[in-house]
Nucleic acid binder design. Structure first.
Length: 489
RNA sequence: GGCGACGUGGCCGAGCGGUUAGGCACGGGUCUGCAAAACCCUCUACGGGAGUUCGAAUCUCCCCGUCGCCUCCA
């Protein structure tokens, strides 16, 4: 079945085919590691996790590269602000790399909980300085950049003579000019829309490297060009990221690739795919608005907008119930709804495993299955695919009650489809991790029951409870006035 | 100001000319020791206006409103 994906570059859905089958090169802009992972990170990661999983399911040999940006990402107006990681390090009086490592670890922890698969390669910008410098040198040699006071800028005016600038975001340089604010401190640049490939570092700057232009550090956009091309070649198949990266980040990447490699670069990637943003009460979630929610806050229920904790799969389902190119408006009500929907889905999945086959089939599993894959093939419409599962739940319950029947091969196909699509492709896990608190409550309750049984000298029941608990990995120890328990293998 | 999205029932959210999308919530009922689950029923929308069409949430135009990008952000 052919997979169609929406390509930001062409603004339409296109049939996806790899450049060099069966290999697929997928590059996604990962986090700049200077803060806690939030709902936006979760949405991007889950979106491309599903794409990665689906491409793999379809039989492609996917190399999935997702970077860690740990240098060069400046705050505030272009080329004037302070490096985000550096600022955090300065505030906390630690090494920048400590900041990077800490937030990388937190990112991994959050994404692991959401069952987001690790990419094949996760390169850090600071580990690829030579590749970035090499690219900049080549861009300079080809005449598309200039050096000023130890900094290097891409010369958009020169670039435009040979390549169109703004094709991804649909902007023209004239429009950019009209929209450019009067900014101070851009004196180094020939034109305000030029962007930095390399920045000179003051001696006190904490992160700096030797370069042909003196001590400095790379610009924000060059690391993604360098690392994606280094690991995936040129052009590679898919470049992804959040919608907010379209301009200037991805536009700059395309320019860098062309400036460095010429027309061969072919826009660096053949498909540019962008997930839409998460909004809170209709507004973009962002630090400056103070309305962002971290993934951890969802799991612990500690955000002021939340009244309780939610398991990771509730969030994963919420995200998958919207199409990735639509904005997703977050609210606790919506999250709670997704959590309940998840529990219902899980329950139905369990029931499905208990169904026994019949001597005829009352409905076509194949037709249903084709609809599911048609939805996935239609630009990864996970919402539509999930709806097909939900609307089948009634039939599953009837199958189990033996009011409906399926031949053995149809039943197997149905069960396999649930497993393949929900678990393998959509990455939902069943069952959810029961919280330790709830687990404790259940064990305590059983112990209480057993205590009652012992008081009534119902030792048969008491022993049964102890044996069953033991089988479930809970070891009981009776003392005169209390019963202690611990986990056992 | 430029570019681009979007406005669907209480909430979230599919939909791309002709079926009830789906989830959650709400109300009534069956069942049940109580409850839950399950099942049945109720509600059943498409910002406003005009147009195209046998037929429009879906196409065209106008208006209103919301949001994103244009400066860092997934």
């Amino acid at each position: 079945m052919p997979l169609y994906l929406y390509n930001t570059l062409t603004r339409q859905k296109e049939l996806f085919t790899p450049y060099k089958p069966p290999y697929v090169g997928l590059y996604v802009c990962g986090p700049t590691v200077y803060g806690d992972p939030h709902l936006g990170h979760a949405r991007a990661a889950i979106t491309f996790d599903v794409l990665f999983r689906y491409l793999t399911y379809l039989g492609y040999k996917v190399r999935y590269v997702r970077n860690i940006t740990d240098v060069g990402h400046l705050e505030g107006d272009a080329d004037e602000g302070e490096d985000k990681i550096l600022k955090k390090a300065r505030l906390e009086k630690v090494e920048p790399i400590e900041i990077a490592h800490r937030y990388t670890a937190l990112y991994h922890k959050a994404m692991d909980a959401l069952n987001v698969l690790r990419p094949s390669i996760e390169p850090a910008a600071t580990a690829h300085i030579p590749q970035q410098i090499a690219m900049i040198e080549r861009i300079l040699a080809r005449g598309y950049a200039y050096v000023v006071n130890g900094s290097v800028y891409l010369d958009i005016e020169r670039y435009r003579q040979d390549f169109p600038y703004g094709i991804l975001s649909g902007r023209s340089v004239e429009e950019l000019l009209a929209g450019t604010r009067e900014l101070e401190g851009q004196g180094e640049k020939k034109n305000p829309w030029d962007f930095a490939l390399w920045k000179r570092a003051e001696p006190t700057h904490l992160m700096q490297w030797d370069s042909p232009w003196g001590r400095g550090f790379p610009g924000w956009h060059i690391e993604c060009s360098a690392m994606s091309i280094h690991y995936l070649g040129l052009p590679f198949d898919i470049h992804g990221g959040g919608l907010d990266l379209v301009f200037p980040h991805h536009e700059a990447e395309i320019a860098q690739a062309h400036a460095c490699f010429g027309p061969e670069a072919q826009h660096q990637a053949r498909f540019w795919i962008h997930n839409n943003l998460v909004t809170i009460e209709g507004q973009k979630m962002s630090k400056s608005l103070g309305n962002f929610i971290t993934v951890e806050e969802i799991f612990t229920g500690t955000h002021p907008k939340l009244t309780r904790a939610y398991p990771p799969m509730a969030l994963r389902l919420l995200i998958l119930q919207a199409h990735y190119r639509s904005t997703l408006d977050f609210s606790e009500e919506a999250l709670l709804g997704a959590y309940r929907a998840y529990l219902r889905l899980m329950s139905a999945y369990q029931r499905l495993k208990e169904v026994s086959p019949g001597s005829h089939s009352d409905f076509s599993v194949q037709a249903w299955r084709e609809k599911v894959f048609a939805a996935l093939d239609d630009d990864l419409n996970t919402a539509a695919a999930l709806a097909l599962f939900f609307s089948q739940i009634e039939d599953i319950l009837r199958l189990r009650r033996r009011e409906l029947f399926l031949l053995p091969e149809d039943l197997t196909l149905l069960q396999n489809t649930w497993q393949e699509v929900l678990e393998k492709i959509l990455g939902l896990t069943f069952p959810p991790q029961v919280s330790w608190v709830n687990w404790q409550k259940v064990v305590e309750l059983l112990i209480q029951l057993r205590r009652q049984a012992r008081l009534e000298k119902n030792y048969g029941l008491a022993d049964l409870l102890r044996e069953e608990l033991s089988g479930a990995g809970v070891r009981l120890m009776d003392f005169p006035d209390e019963t202690l328990w611990e986990l056992s293998a």
